[in-house]
Design a protein around this nucleic acid. Structure first.
Length: 673
DNA sequence: GAGCACTGC
């Protein structure tokens, strides 16, 4: 076991211990700045109390006196609900009264609500009905440094709103030192988002406030030479920590499920070699693909005399906080999603993390007492990392964003003020896609009512088009269910420990020849007729009860949208009968209807079972979770394509006829006619 | 025979 020595392989680096000054000291300054300047940038580490305290300061200073509210946006739903509960407790009021929250499917606010926590995506949607967000006196955008697509767009929209609402106060809160970029964004008037903030620091638009965090110091250790196999290295480091360091749990950052499983396996294999008098080791996986039940294990009390080793993806970097972590082992990589505008295919690739992310990960070790972070890379590798990762807006499919901006009346997408502008290829690709879906006209204006309705629907543009065409095909009820099911993204099926075979068998029971979409419909209909509110039924059929319940909520919401558009939803047949009651013609109508939105996602199966795109340039593989993984087909459409490693996988695949492509998308396919 | 980072409306 002494084959590995931390002192030899890692060099400690100096770490500045953080001060313990509470945010209360800054109360007067914060209120003065908010009163005086339209924009205040708050820089504060986790633990500074900014999210819970600032809204209370503002409320007590009278910012809600005129009946307006203070909005605090969060990138994640859990954060919005938990922070709201915490603030309600501190203010000794019932959640939903003076303090409330609003997330999709859950609005816990009332007429007396003064402080409202909500997701940034939801606040953007509020702008659709209230373009100046006039219900709010102050809007605080929390965690803006994460640079999510919706918080970036929100900041751009807020800057625009502020020109017409000088009374509106904007607080941007960020955990890292990107404060000057944010201030520069709000102070520049040219539309150039890279404006020089320092020139404006004494100006009248905004100010930066720095808050101290309540963090314990974390010793950083680097490798002396690069790791050949970081999973193996992580395992060895665990046992070194275990034999040489004091109490405290270990958190390991790896990139994905496969690495996590193999890491846990290696740790488990080595446990018997521990000295008998040694403390025990309990390795636990943590990634989003696990059921909530399985995720909860990491929060449970560790058995007496045992050290927890949590092996996690990036989910533990910001989304999930586990108490008791004293040691962090960081592989230095993360899997990042990106969108290739040339092919329209998404990629998922392991990428080196940024310095900001490395700091955030290390900080996970210093929440309860001084900790240590072992970086599985050298200090010079750290120095060469980017300061921050590429914002989502520069690597995503922008069709949904552009549709949203257009519906907010922002017609000139190129002149919109972005925090960082997206590459023009991404914009062009998105505009082309929206045009061929009929959401935009020849002048790139939003079509009415089609484009406007597509923007309002809370699904991606291709599915929105399908939904809005479904009543013409007489299958709206079925398409509503299919649309809801595709939002679950593979979490439909639930695999119990060692029951892989049994799950496959369950899946076959619901299989429909025409493909995955109809299979999903079959599952949904079985759930609402046989399994509703019946977790045991789901369990015996290897279905994820929580996911299925979500599908029901999504479907209800989509149905309400359709009804608001004046589109009648006939549920007489579909809701109570299984698919075949509608007959084979119904199935064909559904497949035709799917083609009207997904014509750009068409492919043809080749004799070897792989697929090729219509332009013949890309080979696609059916994802193993698809029915088409081992069935014959000719032409198909698919919900999404994702490249991981060497292969590009397609999932949610349905058989179609070639002729439907030219029939429903003549413009898109005119060249190949 | 073989596989999916994380959010959000």
């Amino acid at each position: 076991m002494a084959d590995y020595d931390i002192a030899r392989d890692f060099i400690p680096a100096l770490h500045r211990p953080s001060s313990l000054l509470p945010i209360a000291k800054h109360r007067e300054a914060l209120l003065y700045l908010t009163e005086t300047f339209p924009v205040v940038i708050v820089v504060g580490m986790t633990g500074s109390g900014k999210t819970t305290q600032i809204p209370q300061f503002l409320e007590s200073a009278g910012w809600c006196a005129d009946g307006r509210m203070i909005a605090v946006t969060q990138p994640r739903r859990v954060a919005a609900t938990t922070v709201a509960a915490r603030v309600a407790e501190e203010m000794r009021c019932t959640l939903g009264q003076e303090v409330g929250y609003s997330i999709r499917f859950e609005d816990v606010t009332s007429a007396s609500t003064k402080i409202k926590f909500l997701t940034d995506g939801l606040l953007l949607r509020e702008a659709l009905v209230d373009p100046l967000l006039s219900r709010y006196s102050v809007i605080m955008v929390d965690e803006a440094h994460e640079r999510s697509l919706s918080s970036d767009v929100l900041l751009g929209v807020l800057k625009k709103i502020q020109k017409r609402r000088p009374d509106l106060r904007i607080i941007v809160s960020s955990a890292t030192l990107q404060a000057e970029d944010f201030l520069g964004f709000f102070t520049s008037s040219t539309g150039e988002s890279t404006g020089d903030a320092t020139a404006e620091l004494g100006g009248s638009t905004g100010r930066i406030v720095s808050l101290e965090g309540r963090m314990f110091p974390v010793d950083i250790h680097y490798l002396t030479s690069p790791a050949e196999d970081y999973v193996d290295h992580a395992v060895r480091t665990v046992f070194e920590i275990h034999s040489q360091e004091g109490e405290g749990d270990i958190l390991i950052f790896l990139t994905g499920r496969e690495e996590i499983d193999s890491c846990i396996e290696s740790i488990t294999e080595r446990i018997p070699s521990l000295p008998t008098e040694s403390q025990g080791l309990l390795p636990l996986p943590l990634y989003a693909g696990l059921s909530t039940e399985q995720q909860m294990y990491v929060f449970e009390e560790t058995p007496e005399n045992t050290r927890k080793v949590i092996v996690a993806t990036n989910i533990a970097e910001a989304s999930v906080t586990i108490p008791g972590i004293v040691f962090v082992i960081d592989c230095g990589f993360v899997k990042l999603r990106a969108f290739d505008p040339a092919t329209g295919i998404e990629t998922l690739t392991a990428t080196a993390i940024s310095k900001a992310a490395a700091t955030q990960r290390a900080g996970r070790a210093g929440r309860t007492k001084p900790g240590k972070c072992y970086r599985l890379f050298t200090e010079s590798a750290f120095d060469s990392l980017d300061e921050a990762s590429i914002p989502e807006i520069q690597r995503s499919n922008l069709a949904p964003m552009i549709l949203q901006l257009k519906s907010l009346g922002i017609d000139n997408i190129a002149r919109f003020e972005y925090l960082t502008p997206p590459p023009s290829e991404l914009i062009i690709r998105a505009l082309e896609m929206l045009y061929s879906l009929g959401a935009l006209d020849d002048y790139a204006r939003l079509t009415k009512p089609l484009g406007l309705r597509m923007a309002e629907l809370a699904v991606e543009p291709m599915m929105a088009r399908v939904l809005l065409s479904a009543s013409d095909f007489g299958c709206l009820s079925e398409i509503l269910s299919i649309a809801a099911m595709t939002t679950l993204q593979g979490s439909v099926w639930f695999q119990h420990e060692g029951e892989k075979k049994a799950m496959e068998t369950s899946r076959w029971k619901f299989a429909v020849d025409e493909g995955d979409h109809l299979t999903l419909l079959n599952v949904y209909q079985a759930f609402v007729t046989k399994g509703k509110n019946d977790a045991a039924w789901c369990r015996s059929n290897h279905l994820n009860f929580k996911s299925m319940t979500k599908a029901v909520s999504v479907r209800n919401q989509l149905k309400r949208y359709m009804e608001r558009f004046g589109i009648n939803v006939d549920e007489s047949l579909a809701s109570r009968e299984v698919l075949r009651a509608g007959g084979p013609d119904k199935a064909e109508q559904i497949r035709r209807c799917l083609t009207i939105g997904y014509f750009a996602h068409a492919a043809r199966m080749q004799p070897d079972g792989t697929f090729v795109t219509v332009d013949g340039t890309t080979t696609l593989y059916a994802h193993p979770s698809s029915l088409m993984f081992n069935r014959k087909a000719d032409w198909v459409i698919f919900h999404e394509a994702m490249q991981t490693g060497e292969k590009t996988f397609i999932r949610d695949i349905t058989k179609i006829e070639k002729g439907w492509l030219t029939q429903y998308a003549p413009e898109f396919y005119k060249i190949r006619k």
